[in-house]
Design a protein around this nucleic acid. Sequence first.
DNA 1: AATATATGAGACCTTATTACTCTTATTAAT
DNA 2: ATTAATAAGAGTAATAAGGTCTCATATATT
Lengths: 161, 161
Amino acid sequence: MRLTRAAEYAIRCMVYLSRQGQGVLTSRQEISQRADIPNHFLAKIAQDLAKAGLIEIRQGAKGGFILIKDPAAISLLEVVETMIGEIYLNDCIARPASCKVHYHCAVHRVWQSACDQLRTTLRQVTFDQLIADASCIPLDQETLQVTEESEMTEPPGPERP
Amino acid sequence: MRLTRAAEYAIRCMVYLSRQGQGVLTSRQEISQRADIPNHFLAKIAQDLAKAGLIEIRQGAKGGFILIKDPAAISLLEVVETMIGEIYLNDCIARPASCKVHYHCAVHRVWQSACDQLRTTLRQVTFDQLIADASCIPLDQETLQVTEESEMTEPPGPERP
DNA sequence: AATATATGAGACCTTATTACTCTTATTAAT
DNA sequence: ATTAATAAGAGTAATAAGGTCTCATATATT
């Protein structure tokens, strides 16, 4: 398996939305800036998350993303596999044709059980656990200092007179 | 982590050599044919295995590869990491610069422990265990039937009159 | 010594994937 | 109607994977 950038961004996005809380609408721009995800790339990633039923996308002015599920009901595995497909460690298991007698191969069995173990581990981690603790995404207060002069045209600076 | 083809081939090569036994010389051609590994690619892979001290490469006529270590002392992890470097699951851990406050990130800790778990699993599997059972590489007797008309110029066909 | 038979080492090539970006819709608030 | 947002998907540059090819080197055999 390979954790792609898209998957890492998806996790960050979900951590951010989980912090905001279930049902809270957050703009793509805000997530993009705070969680440090390329804006357009996030749009693409969000589509996958929406298809998987994790978030709802609201179009139009004041649009954005809304976390649909309870963070406690979303596992890390679910988000990861939404982005990269079902986890596998070796080609043989994903594409049995690439190996000859895979059904009774000792090496295969090792990879299979290692894979199962990994998936179980990731399945046990939920997003309410992940937001309980500090994470790579800075908290709101911290960010405001740093992200003030962003790459975006004109961030709306909340405390402007 | 990503199990590359080179790593899969390396495992097959080591399974084959382990079956032959420690200290037994086997030609690259034979391994290539029997374990279904592209001949020249195997040469490249063998160099890595040799550098890691797993096999010895004997040059010249009647050259080939010799398993140096006892199969019971070679772990699957060792062979895999020889080929793809130390296993990691996410970029953040391999390249801490790609994340901001990695040292106290909940997501990181999950990946780190999943990674540790995976490496431990692979470390516990040794090649004597792998050859005790059937594998993807056909046994000698089986192969002779199938590989008879190979891509090579003139295989020496042991039962020719 | 000469020759045939192996592998070594590394340059080179092709294809696939990653990680984005860009453009043209579409949707909703004002 | 206008403006502000996202949708959807095509397009693109960079990187890596997976081999192949060539020339050099080493060794057994004659």
